[in-house]
Structure formats: C-alpha cells, structure tokens
Amino acid sequence: MREQRRCGGGRPSVRWSRWIAAFLEMALVAGIAGCGGAGSKQVKYPVRAVTLVVPYAPGGSSDLSARPVADAMKEILGQPMVVVNKPGGGGSVGAAEVAAGKNDGYTLLNASIGPITIVPYTTQVSYNYESFEPIAQLTDIPLALAVSKNSKFQTLKDFVEYAKANPGAIKYGHPGAGNIQHITMERFCQSVGIKVTQVPYEGANPAVAALLGGHVDATVTGTQEITGQYKSGEIRVLGVTSASRVDMLPDVPTFKEQGYDLVAGVWYGVLAPKGTPKEIVDKLADAFKKACQDSKVLEAWKKLYLTPAYLGPEEFAQRIKKDAATNQKVVESIGLSKK
C-alpha cells in the first residue's frame, strides 16, 4: 500500500508524457510570470503531497497520534499528507534523515522530546535541535511516578524521605536509558538530593509489567501508559509532572502541589529542516493549529490519553531550546554524554 503511494499512478504512455511536459512548461511560465508580477510573497504551497516522517514503528504513540492529524491536514491544505515510518535508534534515524532533507516544506518530522533534545547529547548523530525549524507542538503528555498498590509509599514525600535515609535502595524502572523518563527522574533526584537505582527496560510496557510483578519499586512512564492500571487500583501514582492536574488522573497531585519544583512532559510536535521558508512554516503552523481543533483529531487523542497542547513556531522553538539545555545538563551530570 505504501509502495503504491510513492510510485504514483501507472506509467504514462508517450502521448501522455508529452501532454504532461507541455502542461509543466505552461505551469513554469505561469509561475515565472507570477513571480515577476505579484512579488515573491505568494508562494504556491503545497502543490503536491507532503511527507510526514514518523521516526518510530507503526502502531506506537508517535504513529497513532500523527495519523489523524495527517488526515485532517489533507482537508486543510488541499494536498495529501503521507505518513512514512522510519524507525530506529530511538527516533534518531528518522530525525537525521529529515534534518538532512530538502527544506522545501515537503518533508516534515513528527518529532518528540527524546530524539530532539536528548539523543544529540548522548549519541553521535548528524543533527541537533538547531538543525530544524520548529513548526508546531501538538501534544504534551506529563510523566507519572507510579508504585504498586502494596507499596509503603503513599506520597511523593514518603518516597523522597525513604530515599534520603536509604540511598540507592529504591529501584525504579523506566522505558530505556537516556529516554526522557529516565532523564527527568534523574533530574528530579538531583534537585532533591536523593539517590535511587535505575533499571532500564525496553519500552514502557515491560517497565509497567515489572512494576505490576513487583520486580521494581517504582516506574516512571508517560501518564497514558498507566491509566488503565491506575483506574483498576493495581498501582498508585505518587505524582504527575504537569503544571496542573491531568484530566484522566484527577485524584493525583502534581509534583508542584507536593512542593517539588518539577514540570516536564513528553511533547510531540512537527519540525521541518533548517532553512524552510518562513511563509511555509507559518502556513503549516496555521494549518496544524486548525488540525489540533479538528473534532476527529481531538477524539483520537482523547482515546489515546494524549493531551492537546498546540504551540506556534516561536513558543515551540523556545520550549525546545529550554528542554535541550535542561536535558544536556542532566545527561552530562549522570555520565551519559557522548565522548
């Protein structure tokens, strides 16, 4: 199915190709004439399908959150937006490819916080956050610190005090070394001066399973990963890292409420390669803003427990810069930075 899309239609016969050539020529002439006449303000964009690279495998949060957006964008832009999955290297393979791609607005990255603001500091990759033009942040999912229902920790304070009294005794699972969950937890531990033992798992599901099975004392994941287990009472959530409480976990206090200054989250957003013309960036940002208000998109996100959080190009760029600086510091302090 994906192949067909890329190949376009069938192969045109000789006669057809002449027609197409003639048509293209006309279009070119018209284009040049247009440039001369009305000034270069009016860029015709998009005139063909826009590719949205998802740097993870199909079926994950990144993929499922992007697909309804791509559908909505088709209606808004009048051109299809094609989702292409380029998984690998914790999102860095797809990110590197887009960073090196053409900055004509036809190749975009469905980025997330990890590959953009952490991976460039931990791993030798060919890009950093400055290789991109931020277009729009779409969603923002807070993290949760969860413990088993039988845990001795009732509140975040219990957790911190126990960790202070018993350095390294608490073992917490997270979805992978150098992931935002890991980095954020380490950042929290540094800020309150505690030491805990981290146990990396391969993805959020195994980390949650380890918590349910009692193989770790706590797990740090995105809130959407533990909502089901929380509602059934199998686990207790000590705190969420959002600025205010989360709709799906209304009884869970934030870190801030409990007196700890930690606000963090996993964002998903769209980036274009550096140097993409400002008109195109603005046009896309407007279109994504509309897509973020589309009822189908909102419904899909709600079901996936993703929190809509649109940010325009400037605000998004500021956030990325801030996140990158914070994460770089943590990465260096825990010895994860690249040589």
Partner: peptide, 19 residues
C-alpha cells in the same frame, strides 16, 4: 544501542547500525 546503558556499541560510527 546497548539496551542497558543506552549507548551505541560496535556501530563503527555507521549511522545505520545505530538501530
């Protein structure tokens, strides 16, 4: 990627081997 330390190993600096 080393699944525990989160660092690339034996990739010889080749981007494609990161995964």
């Amino acid at each position: 990627m080393d699944p525990i330390s989160g660092r690339p190993r034996f990739t010889l600096g080749i981007q494609g081997l990161m995964a």
